[in-house]
Measured scan of single mutants.
Amino acid sequence: KLLSSIEQACDICRLKKLKCSKEKPKCAKCLKNNWECRYSPKTKRSPLTRAHLTEVESRLERLE
């Protein structure tokens, strides 16, 4: 599967780190437990900047 097509777990399953069936409108866990089942939009991760990478590398060197 391509990364862009990976389905996201519902908010509660993601928060509780449960295996989500990803069914809509309610996944199996939410249906069974009568929880409100919501699927928040995916958040875009910002790409690493060179400055951040350099900072992490220098912190790693100090720890070694």
Rank of each mutant, 00 (worst) to 15 (best):
1 K>L: 14
1 K>N: 15
2 L>I: 12
2 L>G: 15
2 L>K: 10
2 L>C: 12
2 L>N: 14
2 L>D: 15
3 L>Y: 12
3 L>Q: 08
3 L>E: 15
4 S>V: 10
4 S>L: 12
5 S>L: 11
6 I>A: 10
6 I>N: 10
6 I>D: 07
7 E>P: 08
7 E>W: 12
8 Q>M: 09
8 Q>C: 04
8 Q>E: 03
9 A>Q: 06
9 A>T: 00
9 A>E: 00
9 A>G: 10
10 C>H: 01
10 C>G: 02
10 C>A: 07
10 C>L: 01
10 C>S: 01
11 D>A: 01
11 D>C: 00
11 D>Y: 08
11 D>H: 06
11 D>F: 00
11 D>P: 03
12 I>S: 06
12 I>N: 07
12 I>T: 11
12 I>M: 09
12 I>R: 11
13 C>L: 05
13 C>K: 02
13 C>N: 01
13 C>S: 00
14 R>V: 01
14 R>I: 03
14 R>D: 01
14 R>N: 01
14 R>M: 00
15 L>S: 11
15 L>I: 10
15 L>P: 02
15 L>G: 11
16 K>R: 04
16 K>N: 08
16 K>E: 02
17 K>T: 03
18 L>Y: 09
18 L>C: 10
18 L>T: 06
19 K>T: 07
19 K>A: 05
19 K>V: 05
19 K>R: 13
20 C>A: 01
20 C>N: 01
20 C>W: 00
20 C>R: 03
20 C>S: 05
21 S>Y: 02
22 K>D: 04
22 K>Y: 08
22 K>A: 02
22 K>M: 04
23 E>V: 13
23 E>K: 11
23 E>S: 14
23 E>W: 06
23 E>I: 09
24 K>D: 11
24 K>V: 15
24 K>F: 15
26 K>V: 10
27 C>N: 02
27 C>A: 04
27 C>Q: 04
27 C>G: 02
27 C>F: 07
28 A>W: 15
28 A>H: 13
29 K>C: 08
29 K>V: 00
29 K>M: 07
29 K>A: 05
30 C>G: 08
30 C>P: 01
30 C>N: 07
31 L>W: 15
31 L>I: 12
32 K>M: 12
32 K>N: 13
33 N>Q: 13
33 N>W: 02
33 N>K: 09
34 N>H: 11
34 N>D: 12
35 W>A: 14
36 E>D: 13
36 E>K: 11
37 C>M: 07
37 C>T: 02
37 C>S: 06
37 C>F: 06
37 C>V: 01
38 R>C: 14
38 R>P: 07
38 R>V: 10
39 Y>R: 06
39 Y>F: 09
39 Y>S: 06
40 S>V: 06
40 S>Y: 08
41 P>Q: 05
41 P>F: 01
41 P>G: 05
42 K>V: 05
42 K>A: 13
42 K>M: 12
42 K>R: 13
42 K>H: 10
43 T>M: 12
43 T>S: 09
43 T>N: 08
43 T>R: 05
43 T>G: 09
44 K>V: 15
44 K>H: 10
45 R>D: 01
45 R>E: 07
45 R>L: 02
45 R>G: 00
46 S>W: 02
46 S>C: 01
47 P>Y: 06
47 P>K: 07
47 P>W: 07
48 L>A: 00
49 T>N: 00
50 R>M: 08
50 R>Y: 08
50 R>N: 01
50 R>G: 02
51 A>V: 14
51 A>L: 10
51 A>P: 04
51 A>K: 10
51 A>H: 10
52 H>S: 06
52 H>C: 04
53 L>A: 01
53 L>K: 02
53 L>H: 00
54 T>L: 07
54 T>E: 09
54 T>A: 06
56 V>N: 01
56 V>P: 03
56 V>I: 06
56 V>M: 06
57 E>N: 01
57 E>W: 07
57 E>I: 01
58 S>L: 13
58 S>R: 09
58 S>E: 15
58 S>V: 13
58 S>G: 13
59 R>Q: 12
59 R>H: 06
59 R>I: 00
60 L>Q: 03
61 E>C: 13
61 E>A: 12
61 E>L: 14
61 E>I: 11
62 R>N: 07
62 R>T: 13
62 R>A: 15
62 R>D: 02
62 R>M: 13
62 R>H: 08
63 L>H: 05
63 L>W: 02
63 L>A: 03
63 L>Y: 04
64 E>H: 10
64 E>T: 13
64 E>R: 10
